[in-house]
Design a protein around this nucleic acid. Structure first.
Length: 581
RNA sequence: UCCCCGGUUGUGUAAUGGUAGCACGGCAGACUCUGGAUCUGCUUGUGGGGGUUCAAAUCCUCCCUGGGGAACCA
């Protein structure tokens, strides 16, 4: 059946020498022992939701295992449940996986729904072999016959052996006739199913005569009303793999228990022997990677949408400013195993910082501005200063900054009474204005409410460019923008979506949604940036010096460019503050 | 209860019978025109008991413990 899809593809990737994980070890072993002569994997999304970083992990494993062994990877939409699926999701998933660099190509993009005809033929084959039958039991009856005790997980006392359906021993002819009539639409939805005839006393419940086809008059987003019976995952998935000549069908741990069934269908259908291997799915602290929960966050307005920058969706991460390189690096670092794990979100953030530190152009922006006046600055003088665009990348060059006696600085960078170890601006202290001059704080002004409105200082004309010719140590260097030409911007700062490390673990009686961090976004709409920020392109990352990495949001804020903080810089001062508190 | 799969430092992951390593985090320090970056050092780990062996994270056994399964979802 799969002969036409099996090329003599040489196995020669960089994972053939030594295994870096148990899956690659297994693949290499299969090749060595001649179980397969090539490697082909698949990305198996169901088009019923948005792709998140958990899917990205699975997809990257699928994709790069194939690549490492010189094989191919198919993108196959597992669309066998017409009630849940939609073309819009196909498009979103395709876009997101390509953005991640997982491009299987149009010629390697498939749909389980394309195989409905073939799957139907294989079902007929199983009926003829006497290993599938049409059952008249209702869903409720099937559950009872399976030997399921009580649906309440905490209240189950034992699992009795199942009981054969009274329709289990229909003749092949009758089954063939009934199945044809199911397909022809003669029976009501839910009134009959096609079941595999395996073993109703099997200790593995999924082997107790699983349902292969159900009657469901729902239009399918791709094949419309062509079918009123649809195959179940357990039947469709292994045989779709088989049809495509997939060698290694990699999936998450929850399918482990289905593997005997996966193998049973392929054996009985006598098709290409694809092999299923399971690994653990990704969990990350302070967030959730469950389609159902993410959907609720969106639907109940707890976030702005699927692409909200706080969401762990690929669309959300992209909007937040995550790069595909950072995500790939993260996935590589967490490894592949069968242990249920909870990865610290700080590792993800570390991967982003590392990538952006190397590539992001430095600019200055002030999130919460306060005026700084240089009292001894010559009236009317405007100077030009040279600033480095990226100290990690000489090729990024320099830019020119204009400087005069009226600047805006970060409110945090001035303290009327400095806390211990504070070495920025306070009366009597000197500080360097990045790329500008060393200034000495001489005073400040406050309004009636006690809020500082202006910081006063004097500059040392001998320190242009920030140099200290007399070699004096100036501990603090602060960022600034020139009041006269700063551009108004909005900056959004994000925190974890959930306060708790493990938001899925909800205290009894509490709603998990109470765990949503009420301060997961802070908007600074009075922020000011260097003039160049007005033309910031979408998708470009910047480091706002001393503040973090930012990227432009697709939307703006009343004409002001809106920037999302992708991740902050490592903040040693915050740690000191925290310790002092 | 039954069936299946796991437990290596705070977290993630190596070591496949032979020195328990790496990364992140954390802590301390050096350096620095970003309290960034970089660099150095430190950071109580093989769930427990028994067994096999010259030698066990690794093999056997019992126990403990975590996850998954019992949809006409995937």
């Amino acid at each position: 059946m799969s002969d036409d899809t099996v090329p003599a593809s040489p196995a020669g990737g960089d994972a053939t020498e030594e295994a870096s994980d148990f899956i690659r070890a297994a693949v290499r072993e299969d090749l060595k022992k001649g179980r397969y002569s090539y490697v082909r994997t698949r990305l198996p999304p169901e088009p019923n939701g948005w792709m998140h970083i958990g899917h990205a992990k699975a997809f990257m494993i699928d994709y790069y295992v194939a690549l490492d062994f010189g094989g191919q990877c198919n993108l196959r939409f597992d669309d066998t449940n017409p009630e849940a699926e939609d073309l819009a999701f196909v498009e979103a998933i395709t876009r997101d996986s390509r953005w991640l660099g997982l491009d299987c190509g149009d010629d390697r993009t498939f749909f389980a729904s394309d195989y409905y005809g073939k799957l139907y033929e294989l079902a007929l084959k199983l009926i003829r072999k006497g290993v599938a039958y049409v059952d008249d039991l209702s869903d409720e009856e099937i559950r009872v016959y399976r030997g399921t005790a009580v649906p309440d997980k905490h209240n189950i006392t034992l699992t009795p052996p199942g009981k054969d359906s009274p329709w289990r021993n229909r003749s092949v002819e009758e089954n063939l006739d009934l199945f044809a009539r199911m397909r022809a639409g003669e029976f009501a939805d839910g009134s009959k199913t096609l079941r595999a005839k395996i073993d109703m006393a099997h200790p593995n419940l999924v082997m107790r005569d699983p349902v292969m086809y159900r009657i469901k008059r729902a239009p399918h987003y791709r094949v419309g009303n062509e079918w009123c019976i649809y195959p179940m995952y357990d039947f469709a998935h292994p045989l779709s793999d088989s049809i495509e000549g997939i060698t290694h069908s990699l999936c998450s741990l929850e399918y482990e228990i289905h593997r005997p069934l996966y193998e049973w269908f392929i054996r009985e259908a006598e098709t290409f022997p694809s092999r299923q291997i399971e690994f653990s799915r990704l969990n990350i602290t302070h967030t959730v990677l469950s389609k159902r929960w993410l959907k609720q966050l969106v639907e109940e307005g707890l976030v702005e949408g699927w692409d909200d920058p706080r969401m762990p969706t690929i669309a959300g991460l992209r909007r937040r400013g995550y790069t595909r390189e950072a995500i790939k690096d993260f996935i590589d670092r967490i490894g592949i195993a069968k242990t249920n794990s909870m990865v610290d979100i700080q590792l993800l953030e570390h991967c982003l910082r590392e990538d952006l530190n190397r590539r992001a152009r430095r600019v200055m922006a002030v999130l919460d501005p306060v005026e700084l006046v240089i009292a001894n600055w010559p009236e009317g003088l405007v100077e030009e200063l040279s600033a480095v665009n990226n100290p990690e990348d000489e090729a990024a060059g320099t830019r020119t900054l204009r400087f005069d006696g009226r600047l805006m600085i970060e409110r945090d960078d001035f303290a009327e009474i400095p806390p211990p170890k504070y070495f920025r601006l306070f009366p009597g202290n000197q500080v360097r204005l990045r790329y500008g001059y060393i200034v000495n704080c001489t005073g400040f002004e406050k309004d009636a409410s006690g809020r500082v409105t202006r910081v006063l200082c004097e500059y040392d004309p001998g320190t242009k460019g920030g140099n200290a010719p007399d070699n004096r140590k100036v501990k603090g260097t602060i960022h600034w923008v020139r009041a006269a030409d700063a551009v108004p911007i909005e900056a959004r700062l994000f925190d974890h979506l959930f306060l708790a490390e493990r938001p899925m673990e909800v205290e009894p009686g509490k709603d998990w949604k109470e765990g949503v961090n009420p301060d997961s976004v802070q908007t600074r709409n009075g922020a000011l940036g260097e003039p160049s920020l007005a033309e910031a392109r979408l998708g470009e990352s910047f480091q706002f010096e001393r503040l973090g990495y930012f990227t432009r949001d697709p939307s703006d804020s009343e004409g002001r460019p809106r920037f999302n903080r992708s991740v902050s810089l490592r903040d040693t001062w915050a740690k000191i503050e925290k310790k002092q508190a």
